[in-house]
Simulated scan of single mutants.
Amino acid sequence: MFSLKRQTGNKAENLALQYLEKNGLKFIEQNYLTKMGEIDLIMLDKSEQNLVFVEVRYRKNTYFGSAIDTINASKQTKLIRTAKHFLQCHSQYDDFICRFDVIGLESDLKYPNINWIKDAFGAL
């Protein structure tokens, strides 16, 4: 049985997926998992020929900071390593520009405030 935290995370990711699709991105993969980490959503932004790696964060309240504030340097490093692994295994995306976006959902998941930061951080 899924934990309540995992169920909430899945719901937040699905809301983010719907939001991104409504904004023109195409779904590639969800919950790409490796030993190095996990990428919540992998999307294609055809308008810019970008492969987009998306981290989804949810906070019911912002007492201890926003959802987006939780993406620290360590998390960024894990996301970058995992994205490199994805690219090594999927050569069809070799010619795409890669981008790391963050979707922050806050408040009640029935009517969340959604904050989408495109190109939130880069990979060196």
Rank of each mutant, 00 (worst) to 15 (best):
14 N>P: 04
14 N>D: 15
14 N>W: 12
15 L>P: 10
15 L>Q: 13
15 L>Y: 09
15 L>K: 15
15 L>A: 12
16 A>G: 06
16 A>V: 09
16 A>I: 13
16 A>Q: 09
16 A>P: 07
16 A>Y: 08
17 L>G: 13
18 Q>L: 15
18 Q>Y: 14
19 Y>R: 11
19 Y>T: 06
19 Y>K: 04
20 L>E: 09
20 L>A: 08
21 E>N: 12
21 E>W: 07
22 K>G: 10
22 K>N: 15
23 N>Q: 14
23 N>P: 06
23 N>L: 13
23 N>K: 15
24 G>S: 10
24 G>C: 10
24 G>Y: 03
25 L>I: 03
25 L>N: 07
27 F>E: 10
27 F>W: 13
28 I>F: 05
28 I>K: 11
28 I>S: 02
28 I>P: 06
28 I>M: 05
29 E>K: 15
29 E>D: 14
29 E>T: 11
30 Q>K: 15
30 Q>L: 07
30 Q>T: 13
30 Q>C: 07
31 N>T: 12
32 Y>K: 11
32 Y>T: 08
32 Y>D: 06
32 Y>W: 11
32 Y>S: 06
32 Y>E: 04
33 L>R: 15
33 L>W: 09
33 L>Q: 14
37 G>F: 04
38 E>I: 06
39 I>R: 03
39 I>T: 10
39 I>W: 02
39 I>A: 03
41 L>I: 08
41 L>D: 08
41 L>F: 11
42 I>W: 14
42 I>M: 11
43 M>L: 13
44 L>R: 13
45 D>I: 07
46 K>V: 11
47 S>G: 14
47 S>Q: 14
48 E>N: 13
49 Q>P: 05
50 N>K: 15
51 L>I: 15
51 L>Q: 05
51 L>N: 09
51 L>T: 09
51 L>H: 08
52 V>H: 07
52 V>S: 08
53 F>P: 08
53 F>R: 03
53 F>K: 05
53 F>H: 03
54 V>Y: 00
54 V>W: 01
55 E>L: 06
55 E>M: 05
55 E>I: 01
55 E>G: 08
56 V>F: 05
57 R>D: 01
58 Y>I: 05
58 Y>L: 09
58 Y>M: 07
58 Y>V: 04
58 Y>D: 02
59 R>S: 03
60 K>F: 14
61 N>V: 03
61 N>K: 08
61 N>Q: 14
63 Y>F: 13
63 Y>S: 15
64 F>G: 04
64 F>M: 05
65 G>Q: 01
65 G>N: 01
65 G>F: 00
65 G>H: 00
65 G>D: 00
67 A>E: 00
67 A>N: 00
69 D>C: 01
69 D>K: 00
69 D>T: 00
69 D>V: 00
70 T>V: 02
70 T>M: 01
70 T>D: 01
